[in-house]
Design a protein around this nucleic acid. Structure first.
Length: 652
DNA sequence: TTAGGGTTAG
């Protein structure tokens, strides 16, 4: 076939309106049969076929034509001497959601360098891929090529380079490029503003925005506004967020769904649910993101019934709204509903992801649902080669909270890359199981490894000291967290210390701490002090603590009961009776105690004197039997055993 | 051809 006769075919293979992938594959098969793909002469045809295939379908949804294009490109007897087919493939690969496909950009660029010269289209695609893959070294080498080939004045290349630096290197590097560049457009500003927001430095982003507005060379568009409105949400600055929303409306910025979703998210984060709702209602064509954002909004305000209603009204759902609703249930401590939602999710054939698993494990921890937690563990094991640090941490926490500390330790040791959160979960687990010495050793090991403890790590360490009565060590940690680790002491740290000092009988020191702490003590702090007073028979201080507790929550029956018990223990019958009369007089009712147990994956709840369970007779028979056995065992037990460690745990 | 939104552990 002579070159002129190829023209009609070349015209068909347009990248703007390519034929369907099926037709292109058919055409390729015909050309192969006709022997037109083996010689050097039809090279433009092969190149155009690659380009058309790479443009034919959206590679995020159907990567097959792209894979075919790559195979075709690799099979050509003589590689193309033009960058175009490579660019087409790089463009499509850089769009893919599958990381494995994006990675293929790197060897493809090497092939390009062997046979052709990169052009102004090559670098934006390639740098985008490097940014997505976090390929810092490779990207830096590419930037070297940009300079040596003289593309540093191309605004598309410079913007892509800025984006790469913002993602993989530092904002300082990206900013240096921006400041030193003679070619700037709207995308340059947006790249920088978006970079600052992504890096969590919204103030810099806003400074750039006001400079951009003042500069006047470019006009902010919806992408700019997405950046700055997200920035105001990060700052939790409602006034600023409203001002930016006002700017959008007064300056005719296109109110795209994406922008409106961000505006909603800003109002939610800044605590204005009503405005978020009104923005949501104003969106014409709501996307799954709009619906999900509204679910998150209601959930954050604890309005789970409204969140559920939005979820039920959604016309279509992906994994995000399922996870958002499940997160809401978990955060509102409604673990049972989170588990129920997971069953619905399975029935709806929605593939759960890591976040679903994280939520499930948190729900299991709340409910003490060990069997379900183990099922989740098996599920994770089946689907993964290695355990991610986030899931691993959650598993450690779940096993600890569901009572199996040995298993928690085994999982901890299996996590290939542990972070400070993983160590904290392990330390807290050990502390709560009474293994104070081991918890402290784990803390020391964590520090040796160079990990930075935070406020929650210290809650774990202090509660370890508290459980073991290690007053001196506890005081040292309490002081160290400020002097060495520059952490702020929160309410929980003070309640731990009051508990530690009080239990050990240092009531004066505990009271002094309560009186001098920098925030108003909460019920947990006063409760710890009250408990210590009752334990050590300090009625005067106990009364003071109890009064504070009543002040903080007059409707809580628990404290009246405990106060009456304290008087009774101190043989102060009259005062005990007075408290009970006061309870009746004030109309305080004792809230019935509730406990739950998981059996064959079903969580059963029991309330005091509740007889509604179908197997209640058998349950009470069993309970009676257990009580008898405990009494019998208690009479037989050697008290020295109580002092022994329940199980021996060592660090490797 | 470059920039941009929703779920995430202790």
């Amino acid at each position: 076939m002579s070159p002129p006769s190829l023209c009609p075919l070349l015209a068909i293979l347009s990248t703007r309106h390519p034929p369907s992938a099926g037709r292109l594959l058919q055409l390729h098969a015909h050309l192969l049969t006709a022997g037109l793909m083996s010689s050097r002469s039809p090279f433009p045809l092969a190149s155009r076929l690659v380009e058309a295939l790479a443009h034919s379908d959206d590679p995020r949804h159907s990567p097959r034509p792209l894979l075919h294009a790559l195979a075709l490109l690799a099979s050509l007897p003589t590689p193309p001497d033009s960058a175009s087919p490579y660019n087409a493939a790089l463009r499509a690969l850089s769009l893919c959601t599958d990381r494995g496909l994006v990675t293929r950009c790197l060897p493809l660029y090497c092939s390009l360098l062997r046979s052709a010269r990169p052009d102004h289209l090559t670098f934006p695609f390639l740098l985008k891929a490097c940014a997505r893959l976090q390929e810092r070294n490779y990207g830096n080498a590419v930037l070297g090529n940009v300079l040596s080939l003289g593309f540093h004045a191309d605004v598309f290349v410079v913007n892509a380079a800025m984006h790469f630096l913002a993602v993989c290197s530092s904002m300082a590097e990206a900013r240096k490029l921006f400041d030193g560049s003679h070619v700037r457009d709207l995308v340059s500003w947006n790249t920088l503003i978006g970079g600052y927001v992504r890096r969590g430095v919204p103030r810099e982003a806003l400074e750039m925005f006001w400079r951009m507005v003042g500069d006047g060379a470019v006009t902010p568009d919806e992408v700019t506004m997405i950046g700055v409105v997200s920035g105001s949400a990060q700052l939790r600055d409602l006034e600023l967020g409203r001002r930016l929303h006002g700017y959008v409306e007064s300056h005719g910025v296109r109110c795209t769904v994406r922008l409106m979703n961000v505006v909603m998210d800003m109002y939610i984060k800044c605590g204005d649910l009503e405005r978020a709702k009104s923005v949501f209602e104003g969106i014409d064509k709501k996307t799954i993101v709009s619906w999900t954002t509204m679910i998150v909004g209601y959930a954050q305000f604890g309005l789970m019934d409204d969140a559920r209603k939005v979820f039920d009204e959604m016309p279509e759902r992906d994994v995000f709204p399922w996870n958002a609703l499940m997160t809401g249930y978990v955060q509102c401590k409604r673990g049972k509903e989170a588990l129920r939602l997971f069953h619905d999710m399975q029935e709806a054939m929605v593939e759960p992801d890591d976040i679903t698993m994280v939520n499930l494990l948190s729900a299991c921890s709340q409910l003490g649902a060990l069997e379900m937690g183990m099922w989740v563990h098996h599920y994770i094991d089946r689907r993964r080669v290695s355990l991610s640090v986030m899931l691993g941490t959650n598993l450690v926490d779940m096993y600890s909270k569901c009572g199996n500390i040995e298993k928690a330790i085994r999982v901890f040791k299996e996590i290939p890359e542990k972070n400070a959160l993983t160590w904290t979960a392990m330390i807290s687990g050990l502390a709560n199981h009474g293994h104070a010495d081991v918890a402290i050793k784990y803390f020391q090991r964590m520090i040796e490894l160079g990990l930075q403890p935070d406020e929650i790590t210290f809650i774990g360490v202090l509660s370890a000291c508290c459980h073991a009565g290690l007053v001196k060590e506890g005081q040292e940690f309490f002081s160290l967290m400020v002097s060495k680790y520059h952490l702020e002491r929160k309410m929980k740290h003070y309640s731990c210390m009051v508990d530690l000092l009080g239990r050990a009988g240092y009531l004066d020191e505990a009271e002094h701490l309560v009186n001098t702490m920098p925030m108003e003590p909460d019920a947990v702090v006063w409760g710890a002090l009250f408990f210590a007073c009752r334990m050590h028979g300090n009625i005067t201080l106990g009364e003071k603590a109890a009064m504070k507790l009543v002040e903080l929550d007059p409707g809580d029956s628990g404290i009246y009961v405990l106060l009456a018990n304290m008087y009774a223990e101190a043989n102060m019958r009259k005062k005990a009776d007075k408290v009970r009369v006061m309870m009746r007089h004030l109309g305080v009712e004792k809230v019935p105690g509730c406990s739950c147990i998981e059996l064959n994956g079903v969580v059963h709840e029991f309330i005091v004197k509740d007889k509604s369970h179908t197997d209640i007779a058998a349950i009470y028979d069993c309970l009676h039997e257990i009580t008898l056995q405990i009494e019998h065992t208690a009479n037989m037990i050697d008290t020295s055993m109580l002092l022994a460690e329940p199980c021996k745990i060592v660090i490797d």
